[in-house]
């Protein structure tokens, strides 16, 4: 297919095909490669536009590595990644740059993922500086106020610093930063696991509202199956670098087939 043709309509927003991410283990006298850590081992899945796909598994299962490899924060050993039908997995960082605007990320720890020396305005407008260098200051400022409003933070928070905010508010700032460049796909890497349950509920609701309003697509990475089941349309369960089960959220909960999924369900605290 030539590059200038629009992708076929049925193409999913994101398609991951046989993705492998291996890290070499060096050993012996010559520090030769003796083996590999198979962080992600032959993983394939689809993410359709406007839906939420949950990726669940324990620490070390490879779920974060998948998210990072999609935006080239982790090197790919094998396999392909298609974004709107275009192969992006083999691109250089320079070639990938226009796609970086379409795919944004929200991180787990709102205490570590915001620069303590930057004001909220600087944090949220940093992606604008990179992707819209032609915008003037007033336009960026207006956009920041608009974004703060979208995540339900007062406009006067823009001159303040991250330490003046609670965990939930900081996560809202992280979300505003991700939304700044009007992305299509947001990779949410454990966005609520560092938060209180009550604050977790607020952030999950906010993410759902934004999805409806802006037509966003989420890849929602988490270890808590209860939260993933709630927010996702489709769920992928990962264990040791492989997807062991994938099904719709209802199906996973009502009729988990893989023993590992059953173990995860049993471990989730219930009332």
């Amino acid at each position: 297919m030539p590059d200038d043709q629009p992708p076929p309509l049925e193409a999913p927003l994101l398609e991951v095909k046989n993705l492998k991410v291996y890290y070499p283990i060096h050993g012996g006298l010559m520090r030769r490669v003796v083996d590999y850590v198979r962080a992600v081992d032959d993983v394939s899945f689809l993410v359709k536009k406007g839906t939420t796909v949950g990726l669940v598994g324990e620490s070390g299962s490879g779920k974060t590595t998948i998210g990072r490899s999609i935006i080239k924060l982790a090197p790919i050993t094998g396999g392909q990644i298609f974004y709107q039908g275009k192969e992006v997995g083999g691109m250089t960082r320079g070639q990938f740059f226009p796609f970086r605007k379409k795919i944004q990320m929200i991180f787990q720890d709102p205490f570590n993922s915001l620069n303590p020396r930057m004001t909220i305005e600087q944090i949220i407008s940093e992606p604008l500086d990179i992707h819209f260098p032609e915008w003037d200051k007033a336009k960026k400022g207006a956009r920041v106020i608009d974004l703060l409003d979208k995540v339900n933070l007062p406009a006067d928070s823009r001159g303040r610093y991250p330490h003046e905010f609670s965990g939930g508010q900081r996560q809202r700032i992280g979300i505003a930063r991700a939304l700044a460049v009007e992305p299509e796909l947001i990779l949410c890497d454990e966005p609520v696991s560092a938060l209180d349950v009550s604050v977790q509920a607020q952030i999950v609701n906010l993410l759902q509202d934004l999805q409806e309003e802006l037509g966003l697509t989420y890849l929602f990475i988490a270890h808590d199956l209860a939260v993933v089941e709630h927010i996702s349309d489709y769920v992928l369960v990962m264990n040791r670098g492989k997807i062991v089960e994938q099904a719709s959220a209802e199906e996973i909960y009502a009729n988990a087939k893989d023993p590992y999924t059953q173990k995860l369900l049993a471990a989730a605290p219930t009332l």
Binding site: V197, A201, V204, A226, E229, A254
Partner: peptide, 16 residues
């Protein structure tokens, strides 16, 4: 109430 309950399919989580 704000704890998500799998299987109930409530649209929104309860907040405080």
């Amino acid at each position: 109430a704000c704890i998500p309950r799998p299987g109930t399919k409530q649209r929104r989580l309860t907040t405080i």
